[in-house]
Amino acid sequence: MIEFKLKGDHIPMIQLLKAAGLVLTGGEAQIVVTEGEVTYNGQVDYRKRLKVKQGDVVEFRGNKIMVV
C-alpha cells in the first residue's frame, strides 16, 4: 500500500496517479481513468478531475493508494 500525504484539501485523480508514480504522464493517467482501470473507494470512477481527499482509497493495477 502506498500512503500519499495530501498537501491541501484535495488532489485531482490524474495528478494523484502521477504523484504516486503509477503513470508517467498526465495523458496516460487520463486514459487509464477513462478506460475504467481505476477504482475510488471500491468503485470504478471515470472522472479525471475527481477531487481525492484525505481518507480516500484509490486502486490501480494492484496498487492501493491511501490518502492521508
Rank of each mutant, 00 (worst) to 15 (best):
K53V: 12
M13K: 00
I31P: 08
E35M: 12
L16K: 00
V38E: 03
K53H: 05
T25A: 02
K48R: 12
M1N: 05
T34N: 10
T39S: 13
D45L: 15
E3F: 15
I11T: 00
G21S: 13
D9Q: 08
K5S: 15
K51G: 02
L22S: 08
L24N: 13
V44R: 14
E28H: 10
V57F: 05
K51W: 04
N63R: 15
M66Y: 14
F4W: 15
K5I: 15
L17N: 03
T39D: 06
G62K: 14
G21L: 12
M13R: 05
T34V: 13
A29Y: 02
A19N: 08
G21W: 14
G26S: 07
K48D: 04
K7M: 13
F60I: 11
E37R: 14
K18G: 05
I2G: 04
E37M: 13
V57R: 10
A19Q: 08
R47G: 05
F60N: 01
D9A: 03
K51C: 01
Q30F: 10
I31F: 12
V33I: 15
D9Y: 00
V68Y: 11
L50A: 07
Q43E: 15
V44H: 12
I11L: 01
V33N: 09
I65C: 04
D45I: 08
V67P: 01
E37V: 10
G21H: 14
T34F: 09
T25C: 04
L6G: 01
V38S: 04
R61K: 15
N41D: 01
Q30M: 07
G62L: 15
N41C: 01
R49T: 09
L16W: 02
M66A: 06
L6M: 03
V32F: 09
K51F: 03
N41A: 04
A19C: 05
V52Q: 00
L50D: 08
V52E: 00
L22E: 12
L16N: 01
V32M: 05
R47H: 10
A19G: 02
H10P: 07
E37S: 07
I65T: 11
V68K: 12
E3K: 12
I11N: 00
E28L: 06
I11P: 00
P12Q: 06
L24Q: 14
F60D: 06
R47A: 08
Q43N: 10
V68I: 11
G27T: 14
G8T: 00
R47C: 06
D9S: 08
G42F: 02
Q15W: 13
E28N: 05
E28P: 07
E37A: 12
R47P: 04
E3L: 11
P12N: 06
V68C: 10
L17E: 05
G42M: 10
I11G: 00
R49I: 04
Y46N: 12
V38F: 06
V52P: 01
K51Y: 01
Y40K: 11
V57N: 06
T34D: 12
L16T: 00
E37K: 14
R61V: 12
V57G: 07
G8E: 07
V58C: 03
V38A: 08
Q15S: 09
V32G: 02
A20M: 03
V44M: 11
I2Y: 05
K5W: 07
K51P: 01
Q15R: 09
Q15H: 12
V57C: 10
V23W: 08
G27H: 09
K51R: 11
A20T: 11
